[in-house]
Write a protein that binds this DNA or RNA. Sequence first.
DNA 1: CTGTTAGCGCATTCAT
DNA 2: ATGAATGCGCTAACAG
Lengths: 346, 346
Amino acid sequence: MAQRAHSSPTLHDVAREAGVSLATASRSLNGSTRKVNEEYRARVLAAAERLGYVANLSAQTIAKGTSSTLALLVSDIADPYFAAIAAGVLSGAEQAGLITTMGITQRSAERELDLVKTLRGQRPRVLILTGSRYVDAALDEALTRELQAFESTGGRVVMVSQRSLPFDTVQTDDYGGARDLAESLVDQGYRSFAALTGVSSLMTARDRLAGFRDGLAAHGLSLPDERVVETEFTRQGGYDGAGQLLSRGLGDAELLFAVNDVMAVGAMSRLREESVDVPGSLAVAGFDDISTARDVTPALTTVRLPLERVGAAAIELALAGQRGDEPTLVTLGGEVVLRTSTPARG
Amino acid sequence: MAQRAHSSPTLHDVAREAGVSLATASRSLNGSTRKVNEEYRARVLAAAERLGYVANLSAQTIAKGTSSTLALLVSDIADPYFAAIAAGVLSGAEQAGLITTMGITQRSAERELDLVKTLRGQRPRVLILTGSRYVDAALDEALTRELQAFESTGGRVVMVSQRSLPFDTVQTDDYGGARDLAESLVDQGYRSFAALTGVSSLMTARDRLAGFRDGLAAHGLSLPDERVVETEFTRQGGYDGAGQLLSRGLGDAELLFAVNDVMAVGAMSRLREESVDVPGSLAVAGFDDISTARDVTPALTTVRLPLERVGAAAIELALAGQRGDEPTLVTLGGEVVLRTSTPARG
DNA sequence: CTGTTAGCGCATTCAT
DNA sequence: ATGAATGCGCTAACAG
């Protein structure tokens, strides 16, 4: 009667309360192949209800030797990019009956490695790593070893948006999206371009720039090197980059492509300050379709990535059969969204 | 030698490899009061390293009877509001050495209750519930019972931004922020106002409107009822609400207050379409300081909430000593951010 | 179909 | 200081 504080009722308590054996209680409550007399079953359920019994997941994990956990590593959950992916992963995990535990790497390779070690302690069924790869070869190698060890004990690892390590990967088609964007802009009548790109060590920035270039090339156009500014991958970077471009002189550039929306927004801010009319004097396009994109003036042309689906795809990949010898690569395409920052050009 | 697939090395393996007893291995690896011969200790560590041993967290949890887990429930992780709070919780949890598992309620009270039940299975030390309360009394009661049961077994629960249930709560000072905003705007020279508010069942919307009203009242001003439009808490709601307001006629209104930024942004969009100059003909202010706020034209005046600190405060509260008889209420204030959507008025 | 028993991996008494 | 033995809560043979 006296429910001791600091201790939940156990299966044992339920069994006693219901007047059945431990095994019967277990089978009624959690057993898969149910072969329990309906009466007993009801008694057990009632007892559990009465006692407020909740099965101890750790004990179950230990006993059956397999957990129902998924671990998700993210660079920064406050970043809408990762938040969207996480949303996809979380809802997919829940549908699969998995509980997900989450870790934030803060874009640090050391922390990422530490978190992998820590989270492995949970014996998760799946480990999903999201975010750009870093450049530290030693850490990459240590991480790879850790992940391989994890796989060798039956775990599955899926990388998201980073295809450099030998594991199953889901990525967005940054190259293709940028190429499509370039072609759409050529269709709109643009012929002369400038670009703001992130530091070239960022694969994302590289792919997007390359795609944009190739899209232009498909129409016999090109992006002159002197009209490409390499700067930070941030709003401030876009702001600064636009400044640099202006001081170099825009030449005949009709459109400025920034490799992501926050840079584009920063650039627009700078252009406004410098009284460069957008899109009249210079059109602007970005990449990502952040929510701000449609609310700036003029609304920003960009490429939308199916971020939630990326998360969902990661789970599907993880749960779909055994890993092959070669890592699987899933690529999800984006979609060009034309807005008023790049009106059709007479 | 042959490492069986699908099975991690256990402490037993490590002990054997190091030629010591299970107990010694345990003490060397995880024991708190370390009284292990330095030589043995080194042997154990080396063996663990060699085998790639990672302690099984579930087993530890079972053995010591206390977990190192925190469970976090969030309405929608893709929503920047919750993402920011989650970021605060996650980093706080990690500092406290807690692993956090996350669940998404999708703004459904049923799902919230289900998730609480599921997550209780983990025996988390702390359970943090984020998001607006719902109106279903029956579910609220069931949830309360579940949470009280959880507390009675030693768990801690903290509610974030919903003070209606009898548990420790961290909330933002919506009322105070709106009041401060109103006073700042009066200082800027505004005297006549209109407002867009969410459905009145939303506590947040109510508090903000009430604060705004009281801030005006402090200066002998008021918000006439016919200038208050109740609409959806979304961008579309703001867009529609602004339309309604215009068709009613703005009268002498100089400034439009929307109870959140997305509504304000929607309203600005509508105003632009209707050729109402912002801020020339009508100034606009919002609430939340979403990242879009400073990138719209004109940049939006608003109130910034310390969302990450809210998350951090939730953890502090949960980890700070025992619960008192009365639930603790922590309130974090916001900060008025004046931008060009509300210039000083001659 | 039900109950008994033996682990799961680990921490922690209790002896030594 | 170390090792052997016990138990955490539960599932899964195993017998009945």
